[in-house]
Design a protein around this nucleic acid. Structure first.
Length: 560
RNA sequence: UGGGCCGUCGUCAAGUGGUAAGACACAUGGUUUUGGUCCAUGUAUUCGGGGGUUCGAAUCCUCCCGGCCCAGCCA
């Protein structure tokens, strides 16, 4: 694979630590998803980073579910997240953890802070807490409950734990500084009361630690040396450090990096959820979704996703990566690995008038010009074939090289044919059939007399064709930045109405008859396609993963 | 507006005082039985802007401008 040196600010930090033998030169990271939704390509950036760094520095990376909020989290997401990470190709071995595994330990930590006079039970209501917190520009003020005795706090916290209070009646707070310019330090909440069943601990607890009182300690318990997270947690770092310091536990270090944004899609759980719930897409694994399950369903490979994550780099600058880069990596891989095959999506019937009526023959076709070991196959040819509708124009513009009246082109691996006449539907004017003649001397697509044609078309013999359904996917949004909307509208107004097209009765070459589920092909001149799980013995269903680069499409776009 | 962070090609991104890597995108030409692939070439005299230090600055200092994050008992 790539031999280039990966370099970024986090690796710089690690290498400096290695030089000074900090942490005894141990590199231990973790990927900490909350099980409240599906993973997307942005999460892949994060776990490729965490697992990748561990791999490169002989370290380890844990998988830890950050499950501190029972009302938002569900078991089914735990499984889907594990499946997605495994699919991309990472292994946490026996290091699967849950923040909820630490609830007992966390409770002891809370007790210690109370005993040290650094935490207190506060009976202010949520509204009052907000008021007392102050604003961005004004300091907050101390809670009237802030100076309770340690004994009283211990007693009240015990009561919180045993369920003597209702939801919202009180919280446990860290006693830090209500005047701090960092709002996260204004006596942050450590525990809140939630009478709800937790997916792992059941009804054992009715108090649950907050993110801030969980994350750093969990890192510390697992002896994580580098806790990598996204930029929005920068403001939390002083608090992360405060808990670790005051608890006198292993000092994990939090380092923040910029999360991934991609053009023509959204990468926020909330927005993706809206697309699912309001039926803009069929589900989380809709092939248009940037979720890992969506990309998988679309036909993307794990390797292409890893290559992408390796290539996009890492920094603290807010960034939006061009989705063309993701497409580049899947094309790059599939160009090397996918067998070529001929398929006509929108068929136009072509009768070769001078070809013998009941004759048929088999022609040799190369499976993959990039891979000589892939060999060749036989493709049947006969008098009536299909070509792509787009490959014929009655009145071709200047740069159109394909078939047109009186023009000669090559049928790939077959013959040169020349268009002699066409038949139209009298009602609609639509072209329904072409009549051509072929040059028997050009068998195999060769040009015995050195005659040149400007185009080579793919085709499928009518009587040998296998029918299939093909699903075409395009960008989910019409705007590079879906959040760029008209007044009063939201990102969903930019959903691309043409992002999904379903084509039935496509004509495939017969070698595809037994195409296996989950395999990928290049349909010559069209793109890369994936056998969708909806396929049955009777009917194959293909997803278009991505088109080939298309010079003609560019020309057309330019002229428009 | 208090605090934190960020600003290098259209998009990511290297660069850490010695004279702007690379990738994608884009453009042009060549090869080609895929308008694919491949190959070659071209794209930042300049690093948000101004001042300063220095023989020398994207890198140091300073002022200014722009963007992102924080006022959940979410993570």
């Amino acid at each position: 694979m790539e031999t280039e040196n990966k370099t970024n600010f986090i690796r710089d930090i690690i290498e400096e630590d290695l030089r000074t033998n900090k942490n005894n030169s141990i590199v231990h990271t973790r990927f900490p998803p909350e099980p409240n939704g599906c993973l997307h390509i942005g999460h892949a950036k994060a776990f490729c980073l965490n697992f990748g760094i561990a791999e490169d520095y002989n370290g380890l990376c844990n998988l830890r579910f950050d499950d501190t909020n029972p009302i938002k989290e569900e078991e089914e997401y735990v499984e889907s997240i594990k499946e997605d990470i495994r699919w991309v190709g990472f292994d946490w071995e026996d290091r699967l953890y849950f923040a909820s595994d630490y609830f007992d330990k966390l409770y002891e930590f809370a007790l210690k802070l109370i005993k040290d006079g650094k935490a207190y039970v506060c009976h202010l209501s949520p509204d009052e807490i907000r008021e007392y917190r102050g604003t961005l520009t004004e300091p907050g003020k101390n809670s009237p409950y802030r100076d309770r005795s340690i004994e009283e706090n211990l007693e009240l916290f015990e009561k919180m734990k045993t369920g003597e209070f209702k939801n919202g009646e009180c919280v446990l707070r860290a006693k830090i500084d209500m005047a701090s310019p960092n709002i996260n330090m204004r006596d942050p909440i450590m525990y809140r009361i939630i009478h709800a069943e937790h997916h792992r601990t059941g009804d054992k607890w009715c108090i649950y630690p907050s993110y801030d009182f969980t994350h750093g300690q969990s890192d510390s318990i697992e002896k994580i040396t580098y806790s990598l997270c996204s930029l929005e947690f920068e403001n939390h770092r002083p608090l992360y450090d405060w808990f670790i310091e005051n608890l006198e536990i292993f000092p994990s270090r939090q380092i923040e990096f910029a999360r991934l944004n991609l053009t023509y899609t959204v990468l926020s759980k909330r927005k993706l959820r809206e697309l699912v719930e309001e039926n803009y897409v069929t589900d989380w694994d809709d092939p248009r979704m940037p979720t890992l399950s969506g990309l998988r369903r679309r036909g993307y490979t794990p390797q292409s996703i890893r290559n992408f994550c390796d290539r996009i780099g890492l920094s603290k600058a807010d960034s939006t990566v061009d989705i063309a880069l993701l497409e580049y990596f899947i094309r790059e891989e599939l160009n090397r690995t996918a067998p070529r095959v001929m398929a006509v999506l929108k068929p136009l019937k072509v009768v070769i008038d001078n070809y013998p009526d009941d004759f048929e023959e088999e022609l040799d076709a190369v499976n993959n010009p990039e891979d000589p070991d892939a060999g060749t196959r036989k493709v049947p040819f006969s008098k009536v074939i299909y070509i792509e509708k787009d490959d014929f124009m009655e009145d071709p513009p200047k740069k159109f090289f394909r078939l047109a009246p009186g023009r000669e082109v090559r049928l790939r691996y077959a013959y040169f044919i020349k268009c002699e006449s066409l038949i139209k539907d009298e009602q609609t004017g639509e072209i329904t059939e072409l009549h051509c003649t072929y040059d028997p001397e050009s068998r195999g697509g060769k040009s015995p007399d050195g005659r040149k044609v400007k185009a080579t078309l793919h085709w499928v013999s009518s009587k040998h064709a296998v029918e299939a359904e093909v699903r075409l996917y395009d960008k989910l949004f019409t705007k590079a930045n879906p959040d760029e909307t008209g007044e009063g509208k939201d990102f969903k107004s930019n959903v691309n109405p043409n992002s999904f097209e379903i084509i039935k009765n496509c004509k495939l070459e017969p070698s595809l008859k037994n195409a296996k589920l989950g395999t990928r092909f290049q349909f010559e001149r069209l793109g890369y396609f994936y056998v969708d799980p909806d396929s049955t013995k009777e009917k194959l269903v293909f997803n278009r993963i991505v088109t080939l680069r298309d010079e003609w499409a560019k020309i057309q776009k330019r002229n428009r």
